[in-house]
Simulated assay, not measured.
Amino acid sequence: MKTTTGLYIGLMSGTSMDGVDAALVQFSEGQPTLLACHTENYPEHLYKGLQRLCQPGSDEINRLGRLDRVVGKIFAKAVNALLAKADVDAKDIVAIGSHGQTVRHMPNLEVGFTLQIGDPNTIAIETGIDVIADFRRKDIALGGQGAPLVPAFHQQIFAKPGVNRMIMNIGGIGNVTWLPATGNEVLGYDTGPGNTLVDAWIQQVKQEPFDLNGEWAASGIASVPLLTQLLSHPYFLQPAPKSTGRELFNQAWLEQQLSEFSQLNEEDIQSTLLDLTCHSIATELTKLSNNGEVYVCGGGALNGELMKRLQALLPHHHIDTTSALGIDPKWVEGIAFAWLAMRHVAGLPANLPAVTGASREAVLGARFPAQ
Rank of each mutant, 00 (worst) to 15 (best):
L325T: 05
G143S: 07
G143L: 10
V163N: 00
C297N: 05
P239V: 00
D130A: 13
G214R: 02
M342Y: 06
N41L: 14
T5S: 15
R360E: 15
W339D: 01
H154D: 15
L83P: 02
V103K: 07
G49Y: 08
P353C: 13
R309V: 09
L64Q: 06
L24S: 03
T244E: 01
E40M: 11
V198T: 15
V176C: 10
G183T: 07
V103Y: 06
R69K: 12
G183D: 03
A354C: 10
F113C: 13
E185G: 13
N175D: 09
P225F: 07
A133W: 08
I140P: 01
D59L: 13
L273I: 02
P193S: 06
D199T: 09
L288F: 01
A181Q: 05
G334W: 04
A222K: 04
E247N: 10
D59C: 09
Y47D: 00
G300H: 04
A22Y: 08
G57K: 09
Y295G: 00
G347T: 08
N175M: 13
G347S: 08
Q204V: 00
V103R: 05
P43C: 12
L187K: 12
D134H: 14
G304S: 15
E260C: 13
A240G: 01
N351F: 12
L306V: 13
Y47K: 14
H279W: 10
H105D: 04
L276H: 05
N169E: 04
N291W: 00
P193W: 10
G188K: 05
P107T: 06
F75N: 12
G14W: 07
T277Q: 09
N250R: 07
S13T: 15
